[in-house]
Design a protein around this nucleic acid. Structure first.
Length: 511
RNA sequence: GGCCGGUUCGUCUAUCGGUUAGGACAGCCCCCUUUCACGGGGCAAAGACGGGUUCGAUUCCCGUACCGGCUACCA
C-alpha cells in the first residue's frame, strides 16, 4: 500500500462513550493501529458522543485507559491534541449543520417535520414501514409540502430532522479492502436521518464529515456497518466527491462461543469470562463488570489473542508481540467470516506470555494482587525468585496468589485427609526427626543438600522416601500442588518448614 | 419479510486447481515428573448441499440450505 507524501495514512477509531470497551471494539482499534503503524501513518481517536441520551460519564476516560493498557496509544485524541480537533463530535456540532444545509440546497437531502408520534403511528399502520421514495410523499417534509408551508414551519421553529434523499435506482458500488466489490441498489435503502431535531448529526453524517475534515485515508469498522455503507457513500459523493473518500474495510464480527450471534457483555456474565478489556463500573447502577486486565491477563497476551481472531500471517506462528504484528500485518490476510470467541484458547495465549515474560516484569504486575490478598512482600527480589519457580503453572496473573502464597505465609488450610489414610507412627517419628534437624540447623537451606539429608534420614529409619514426599508437600503447601518440595524448603527456610511440620503433626495427632 | 455479508475438525485457522487437507486450543492415551504443572510422543476430529467449468475442485461460477448483520431522530 504505497502512498504519496501528501496522502499520509490516517485511520481512526470512533467509539461512542456508552460503557466498557468490549473485545470487538479493541480488535477494531488493534487493526487500525497495526495498519497505521505499518505504513507510518497516524491513528486517531474520535469520540462519537452525538447521542446525548446514551452518554455515560467516565466512558471516555475508560476508553483512553484501555488503549493505554493495551499499548495502542492514539496519535491524536481529545487528550493528545492534534491539528484536526476537536476530537469529540459534541464539540463539532456547528460543523455538521452547514453540510446538512449544503445537501438540502443540492437536493440531496430534505427537511422532515414528522414527529416521533407520526412515525410510530405509521410503523403501526404499515408493517415494515420505511421512510423512502415510496412513502416520503405521504409524509410531512419539504418534498411533499408546498414551499410556502415549508418556509412557514421553518419560521415557526417547528422541530425538524434532515433526511437523505435516496435516489431512485442507482447502483452504488464500492471496493471493500476485505470483502472486495460490494454493490447496493439505492432503491432498497431508506431515507436515513442525517441531522437530528436537536441539531446533532447522526452517525451517518458525522462519520463522513469528520473523516473528510480529519483527512482519514482508511476507514475500518465492524461488519455491522456494511448495510449503511450506501448512505455514507452517497453523502461522500454529494459533499466531497468519491475520489476523496477513504478506503473502507469492514471487519468480521466476534461471535459468542456457544450458539450464534455477536458476542455481548451478557455472554461473558453467563459463561463466566470477561468481555470488556478492563473493569467497567456503570455509574448509574454501580455495577462492575470484570475486565481481562483484572482477570489477570497480560496486555501483550490480550493484544495477541485479539489479533489472531480474524487474522494470521499464513504460517503456524501464533505468538506475536505488538512490534511483530505491526511488521507482519496485512489487510489481505484478515478474514471475512466472524470468529467465535474461545476463552480456553484466550487463557492459553496468556499462559504462553507468562512463560516467556521476564520474572521481574511479572513481579511488578502481580504485586497488586498480593496486596489485595493481604500477603506482605518484604523483599521484592524474593517475589521475583518465587515467580520463576511457579510461573509455568499459572494461566492468569491471579493464579500466582494460590500458586505461591505458601512461600510467604504458612497454609491455613491443610489437606490432612490426603495424608491420613497412610499415616502411621513411624512416619510421625520421621517428621519429628526432620523437624528437629531443621530447628537445630543441621542442614543448610540448599535444595540438593536438603534432599540428600531427607533421603538419608528416611533410609536410616527404614522408610521409603516416596511414601514421605506427599505428606511432606502437604505439610509445607497445604495441598497437592506447587514446585519441587526441596525448592520450597530452601526458600521458606528450614526454620519455617519446621513450624509447618509441627503444626501439621499436631493436627494429625488429633485424629 | 427485504437488503448485505459469511460457510474447512467441537473452536481458532493453513490451503491462493493436483496435499495421506497441515497447525493450535479443548478432549482422550502414553512418557517425563515420588505433587500440580511445564515438556515430549500419540489418538480422534473437517471441506454444508446440488449443479456446472476443468484432465482434475475445499479452492472458480451458479443455485439451495444454514448462520450472522442491518432494517431508530443508537452507534
Amino acid at each position: 500500500m504505497e502512498n504519496s507524501a501528501d496522502q499520509k495514512v490516517r485511520v481512526r477509531f470512533a467509539p461512542s462513550p456508552t460503557g466498557g470497551l468490549h473485545l470487538g471494539g479493541v480488535r477494531t482499534v488493534l487493526f487500525n493501529y497495526l495498519f497505521a503503524k505499518k505504513y507510518n501513518g497516524q491513528f486517531i481517536l474520535r469520540i462519537e458522543d452525538t447521542d446525548q441520551s446514551r452518554f455515560v460519564p467516565g466512558a471516555e476516560q475508560y476508553i483512553l485507559d484501555t488503549l493505554a493498557w493495551c499499548g495502542l496509544t492514539p496519535d491524536e485524541s481529545p487528550i493528545h491534541g492534534g491539528a484536526y480537533g476537536p476530537y469529540r463530535q459534541s464539540e463539532r456540532k456547528p460543523m455538521y449543520k452547514q453540510y446538512a444545509s449544503q445537501l438540502i440546497e443540492q437536493g440531496n437531502a430534505y427537511y422532515a417535520f414528522d414527529t416521533s408520534e407520526d412515525l410510530d403511528a405509521k410503523r403501526k399502520e404499515i408493517p415494515n414501514f420505511q421512510y423512502n421514495r415510496a412513502t416520503r410523499m405521504s409524509m410531512k417534509n419539504s418534498l411533499s409540502l408546498p414551499a410556502s408551508e415549508v418556509t412557514r414551519l421553518l419560521n415557526e421553529n417547528t422541530p425538524y430532522v434532515v433526511r437523505i434523499n435516496m435516489p431512485d435506482s442507482e447502483e452504488l458500488v464500492f471496493e471493500d479492502l476485505i470483502r472486495g466489490e460490494v454493490k447496493f441498489d439505492t432503491s432498497m435503502v431508506d431515507d436515513k436521518v442525517l441531522l437530528k431535531a436537536d441539531g446533532m448529526p447522526t452517525y451517518h453524517l458525522a462519520v463522513v464529515v469528520d473523516d473528510f475534515l480529519m483527512k482519514i485515508t482508511h476507514a475500518f469498522r465492524g461488519e455491522e456497518w456494511l448495510p449503511s455503507a450506501p448512505v455514507h457513500i452517497l453523502v461522500w459523493k454529494n459533499l466531497f466527491g468519491l475520489d476523496q473518500m477513504p478506503k473502507w474495510a469492514h471487519l468480521p464480527l466476534i461471535l459468542k462461543p456457544d450458539g450464534n450471534g455477536k458476542l455481548s457483555k451478557r455472554d461473558g456474565d453467563r459463561l463466566g469470562f470477561p468481555v470488556f478489556a478492563m473493569d467497567w463500573t456503570d455509574p448509574n447502577t454501580n455495577e462492575t463488570t470484570i475486565g481481562f486486565k483484572e482477570r489477570g491477563f497480560l496486555p501483550e497476551a490480550f493484544v495477541n489473542l485479539l489479533a489472531m481472531l480474524g487474522w494470521n500471517d499464513g504460517t503456524d506462528q501464533e505468538i506475536f508481540s505488538l512490534p511483530t504484528l505491526i511488521e507482519k500485518f496485512t489487510l489481505d490476510r484478515v478474514h471475512k467470516g466472524g470468529a467465535k470467541f474461545d476463552y480456553e484458547k484466550a487463557k492459553w495465549f496468556n499462559q504462553e506470555w507468562i512463560k516467556q515474560s521476564d520474572n521481574a516484569y511479572l513481579a511488578n504486575l502481580v504485586a497488586p494482587y498480593f496486596e489485595t490478598a493481604k500477603i506482605e512482600i518484604h523483599e521484592p527480589s524474593y517475589l521475583v525468585k518465587v515467580i520463576g519457580l511457579v510461573k509455568e503453572r499459572c494461566q492468569l496473573l491471579t493464579d500466582f496468589i494460590p500458586q505461591s502464597a505458601f512461600f510467604f505465609t504458612a497454609p491455613t488450610e491443610v489437606d490432612t485427609a490426603s495424608i491420613l489414610p497412610k499415616w502411621d507412627p513411624a512416619k510421625a517419628a520421621f517428621f519429628t526427626s526432620i523437624m528437629d534437624a531443621y530447628v537445630n540447623e543441621a542442614v543448610t537451606n540448599d535444595a540438593t543438600e536438603l534432599e540428600t539429608h531427607f533421603k538419608a534420614l528416611a533410609a536410616e529409619q527404614g522408610l521409603k522416601p516416596g511414601d514421605l514426599m506427599l505428606p511432606f508437600r502437604i505439610m509445607l503447601v497445604g495441598g497437592k500442588f506447587g514446585p519441587g518440595v526441596f525448592d520450597i524448603v530452601a526458600n521458606i527456610e528450614t526454620k519455617d518448614a519446621a513450624k509447618r511440620i509441627q503444626y501439621c503433626l499436631d493436627l494429625l495427632s488429633k485424629n
